[in-house]
Each structure stands twice: as C-alpha cells, then as structure tokens.
Amino acid sequence: MAEQVALSRTQVCGILREELFQGDAFHQSDTHIFIIMGASGDLAKKKIYPTIWWLFRDGLLPENTFIVGYARSRLTVADIRKQSEPFFKATPEEKLKLEDFFARNSYVAGQYDDAASYQRLNSHMNALHLGSQANRLFYLALPPTVYEAVTKNIHESCMSQIGWNRIIVEKPFGRDLQSSDRLSNHISSLFREDQIYRIDHYLGKEMVQNLMVLRFANRIFGPIWNRDNIACVILTFKEPFGTEGRGGYFDEFGIIRDVMQNHLLQMLCLVAMEKPASTNSDDVRDEKVKVLKCISEVQANNVVLGQYVGNPDGEGEATKGYLDDPTVPRGSTTATFAAVVLYVENERWDGVPFILRCGKALNERKAEVRLQFHDVAGDIFHQQCKRNELVIRVQPNEAVYTKMMTKKPGMFFNPEESELDLTYGNRYKNVKLPDAYERLILDVFCGSQMHFVRSDELREAWRIFTPLLHQIELEKPKPIPYIYGSRGPTEADELMKRVGFQYEGTYKWVNP
C-alpha cells in the first residue's frame, strides 16, 4: 500500500466541504435556525453545542446559521458558553472563530407547556436576519415526558411559513410498544414523516454505516452471507464503567431499553437485511423493517440478565456495585447486563442465532459485530482449526478484520490463527472521521433520513421486546451478580454456547 501524504486539518475539512456542497440537498446560502429545546441540560452542553461548534469551526454548516437555545432556566448566552465550552476542545488559535460562533447564538427562556412562551420564541426567531423565511431545525434534547406539549406548541407557534421545518427526537422513544405508539401517533398528527428525525446516534458511527458497503459492494461476501456458512452472529456493546452516581436515570430504563432495543437491534438489521433497491432512505429502511418483521418476540429462556457488584480487589469506582450508587433505588432489580438470542425467521437466516450482548462495568470498552462461520467440513488438521470470524469493530479503534487459519512457519503443516486486517487509523491517516452527532446533524440539514429511525421500524423493535420488558417488570427477577471489570455473568457464556457459538479464547485482536 502506497504511503499517504499527511494533510493538514484545513485540507481534510476542505475535502469534506467539497463532498457536502456538491450535493443538491445542502442549501449552503439559505438562512437556517437550529433550535435546541432543553438548552440547559446535560445532553445540550456535552453533545449538541459542542457538535454545532465543530461543524461551524470546520465550515460545514450553511453560511447563515443561527443557534437558539430554549429552556425553562433563566440563562444568558454567557451562561450557555460557560457550561458548554469546556466540552468544545477549542484551541487558543480558534479564539476569534469561537467569538464568531457565540455571536450567532441567542437564548430564550420559557415554559414547555405555555403557548405564550412559544409565541415569544417565534418572535425572537423572526427578528433574526431573514428569520421569518429561514429553515428551522428543532432538536428535542428533553425528557420524553414533555415531548407531547413541546411538539404541539412548536407546531402551533414556531413553524417557518416559507422555509422547511424538521424536528429531531432523542431516544428513548417511549418505554414499550404502547407508549411508543402513543408518542408516534401524537407526533405524526403534527408533522409529516419526512419532517421527523428520530435519532439513534449509533447509526451515525462510521463502521455501522460501513456495514452496507461491506455487504453490498464486495462480491466475495454475497455468496457466504447466509445460514449455510454463518453459524452465529454476535452483536456486542461493552462499557468498562458503571453508573457513577447517575444511576437514578438509568434505573428508569435499564440496559435493554438503553442499548439493546435500539443500538444493537439497528446493527442487527444492517447485518441481516436484503440488498435495498438503492441507497435512498426509504429503500434502506424498507429492508430493515422486513428483517424486524421476521423476528419473533424474545423468549425468556433465551435471556440472561445481570447486575454488577463491587470488586473487592478493585480501586475507586470498581469497588462499588450498582446498588451502592446513592441515586439507585434500594434493592433495585434493574439489569445492567443483558444477553438475548433472537432468530430472523426467513430463508437466508433460518436457524442462525443472533446474540445481542450489552452491559456496564465490564472488562473493556468495545462495540462490534462478529460473524462466526461454520467449521470446515472434512477436517484434515486433527481438530487444530478454529472457526473463521469476520469482525466489524465499531469502537474504539474502528477496524474490519477476518480471523482465519494460516500455516505456522516451519517444517510442518501446523495451522495457527491469524488475521486479515483493515484498521482505519492506519489505512486512512488523512481522513477526519466525523463524530456520530456531527454526521447525523449534517444529515438533518441535508434532509437525508437514511440513518434515522422510521415509525414502522420503531414499532417493530418495541413489538419484539415489550413482552419481555413487561414480564421483567411484573416478576422482578433478581439479576445474576457479576463482578465489576469482569466479562459479565458466566451464564451468558453458557447461553451463547448452547445456541452454537464457540468461544476459543486463544486469539485476541490487537490494534496495530
């Protein structure tokens, strides 16, 4: 592979701008107003304001973009700056750019259920340069409990009458099928589907988006991507930290609602779906819905739930269990780990287990898709061969690698495990991989909904998990304890083995 010439960040961002501006969906010269509902909250200060700053800094926003914060707290732009700027990672050389960014910011205080507050917000936006005809993007960085009041008031008082209007809704989209349907029906009564952007930030990850290209742009994968060759698929999300004093919020939802029903299920769809007619948003989402419709409700015998306990040999936070978090209700049975087996009941995947695993306070930070292939028929190497695996590593250190057998150097035919490896950090030294939120917010500006969740996708996802969630809430089974920093409950490994996964433990990928 030829040595790549190092590029400056300015040059890299210039390439990104060229890609972005050559499309006809990006209205570079139009006025846009980006409204952050819930501007005083954690999500706004840690993710949304920093993301908008990065896009502005790199010249990736339309030229005439204004940012308006809205929340109940009586704040000023200076207050917003004070709480969000520490997350910007701005350099001293960017000081003038930073001043320009905050000059485009404003803030309006108001209630979430008060019509007069929204009329005041609308008047404020109209007073901005060309504000009355601007395109408006409303980001709901809010708890779902206020979605209905907020969307109703936005629709009645704050819509642009000339430009387009788009609304970005953060997960969780309800707690179960019934609450999700209620919320979807409410929002759909106010906005068209092409105006609604239900954001799952995992769909903005580079390697998640790469799944489609790997599958449908490489001839070698087509013939082997089926039940005849693939023994099982494992989708993993692991965090090495616990709730760390923020367990009160987590306890309301648990690990299945927080990660599995959305992030992991979306990745499953991209692995299992048929080739779409095109890369058009609805063509892709149509195929994802077909996959979900082929999955039956989760069966309790295919589920393992766990909850982390303190590690007596650990240090600091590792010595504390979930129930030691003062914000967690006493005696909570909320799971911090889950392993679930699903089956896609169609011709391509009949009988292939899709194993979804996620948890907190585990032994490493990792998100990946792992396809394990069947054993080689007619073994001539005296059971020395391990199964081939194709691994798409989402985070950290984005990579695609194939675990395969090669001859060990020497005189004899002794096979050993090795890999074919594409590590993004080595291959793409001159490429700026956008943060997931950067990519998705740019998608909203461009009107691309491919990486957002459609209402029928959402409904099918909740259909699969709601009976299990209701059973857990009714019966309150005690989750299996696992030690902070471990791989999780051993019962999860036993479940995976029972459905056909072979864990060798003899080879570990190392970032080159």
Rank of each mutant, 00 (worst) to 15 (best):
F87P: 01
I52R: 01
E93Q: 12
R81P: 00
F88G: 02
I80Y: 04
M37S: 00
F237H: 08
N122Y: 08
G59W: 01
T31L: 07
D24M: 11
A127P: 02
Q111H: 09
A6M: 14
A217D: 05
G242I: 03
A149Q: 05
Y118L: 11
F66Q: 10
V233E: 01
P144S: 13
L121S: 00
V169I: 09
Q22Y: 08
E19I: 09
A39C: 06
E170W: 01
I199N: 03
I224V: 14
K152D: 12
S73Y: 05
F250Q: 04
T145D: 12
A2V: 10
L140V: 10
H32T: 11
F21I: 12
N226G: 13
V150F: 00
D176A: 04
A115E: 08
H129T: 10
L60F: 07
E244G: 12
T91H: 10
E3R: 15
R246K: 15
V108L: 05
I168P: 02
N226I: 01
E93Y: 08
D251A: 05
I230G: 01
R219A: 15
L75C: 04
E239S: 09
G254T: 03
P50Y: 00
Y202A: 12
A2F: 12
P50I: 00
Y139D: 02
S189W: 02
E148Q: 05
Q4F: 07
N105V: 12
F88H: 02
G245V: 09
W164H: 06
I187E: 07
Y197Q: 00
I196Y: 00
F221K: 01
I256Y: 01
A6E: 12
A149C: 11
A103H: 11
T243P: 12
Q28F: 13
F241S: 14
A134D: 05
Y49G: 01
E148Y: 07
V208R: 00
T236D: 15
W164V: 07
L214R: 02
F216G: 03
R219M: 13
N105F: 08
D114E: 08
Y147C: 14
G204Q: 15
I67E: 00
F21H: 14
N122P: 00
A141F: 00
A44S: 04
I199T: 03
N64H: 08
E99H: 13
S40G: 06
L61S: 00
K205D: 15
F173W: 11
I33M: 08
P86S: 05
V146D: 13
R192V: 07
K89I: 07
I224Q: 12
G41P: 00
S188H: 09
K89S: 11
Q161F: 08
I154T: 03
F34N: 01
E239D: 12
R72S: 10
E63F: 09
G59N: 09
F56S: 02
D100S: 13
A231Q: 12
F101H: 00
G38Y: 00
G69P: 01
G242Q: 04
G242D: 09
L130I: 09
E99Y: 03
I187C: 10
I199V: 09
I220D: 03
V169G: 01
R198K: 01
A217K: 03
P223A: 14
G248H: 12
Y249M: 12
Y139S: 02
A127K: 11
S160Y: 02
L7T: 04
A2P: 12
S29H: 14
M37R: 01
Q83M: 06
T243W: 10
I168G: 01
H27Y: 09
F34D: 01
Q4M: 04
W53A: 02
S8Y: 03
G245F: 07
L75W: 13
I80A: 03
I256E: 00
A231D: 13
T65V: 10
I162V: 11
F191V: 02
S123Y: 09
T243I: 14
D42P: 14
Q4W: 10
L121F: 05
H129D: 08
K205I: 15
Y249Q: 12
E3V: 06
Q178C: 10
R57G: 02
K89H: 05
F87N: 13
V146A: 05
H129E: 13
Q178G: 07
D251H: 11
T10K: 10
G110K: 00
K47N: 05
I36K: 01
Q11N: 10
Q209G: 13
G248E: 15
P86E: 10
T236E: 14
L203I: 15
Y107I: 04
F26L: 03
Q83C: 13
L128A: 04
Q28H: 07
K171T: 11
H186Y: 09
Y49R: 00
R166S: 03
G242W: 03
S157D: 08
A25F: 11
Y49M: 04
Q161L: 11
L20S: 10
Q209F: 11
I33Q: 08
E170Q: 13
Q119F: 10
D228I: 09
F250P: 03
R120G: 10
Q133T: 12
G14Y: 05
F66R: 08
A127G: 11
S157Q: 11
A90C: 14
I187L: 08
G69N: 05
H27N: 10
N218E: 00
T51M: 13
G163N: 02
G41E: 13
T65I: 15
N229C: 07
A109D: 07
V150C: 07
L61W: 03
N210T: 11
T145F: 12
Y70Q: 02
V77M: 06
F56D: 02
V150E: 00
I154H: 00
I48L: 11
N165Q: 04
H201L: 06
F221D: 01
E148L: 10
E94Q: 07
P144C: 05
E99Q: 11
G163L: 00
F237A: 03
E63V: 08
N210F: 01
Q133G: 08
A39P: 00
Q195M: 07
S73G: 08
F87G: 03
F88Y: 03
R257G: 14
I33N: 02
L140A: 03
S189R: 10
S184K: 03
R136Q: 03
L130Q: 13
Y249L: 14
E19G: 07
K152H: 10
F241I: 13
V213G: 12
L137K: 01
Y249T: 15
L96I: 15
F101R: 00
E156K: 11
P143A: 08
L140S: 04
R215L: 01
W225P: 01
N105C: 13
W54N: 15
L20F: 04
T65R: 00
A116W: 06
I230H: 04
K97C: 07
P143D: 13
D100I: 14
Q11H: 07
R17E: 05
K82T: 08
P223G: 15
L203G: 15
F138N: 01
R227S: 09
I187T: 15
N153G: 13
S73N: 03
L96E: 12
V213E: 14
K95W: 09
S160T: 10
C158N: 04
L75I: 14
D176F: 04
V5C: 11
H124D: 04
I36Q: 00
V12I: 09
I167Y: 03
L55A: 13
L96K: 13
Q178E: 05
F250I: 10
N105D: 00
F191K: 00
S160G: 07
F138T: 01
S157G: 07
F216H: 02
L128D: 01
K97E: 04
L140P: 00
G110P: 00
D30Y: 08
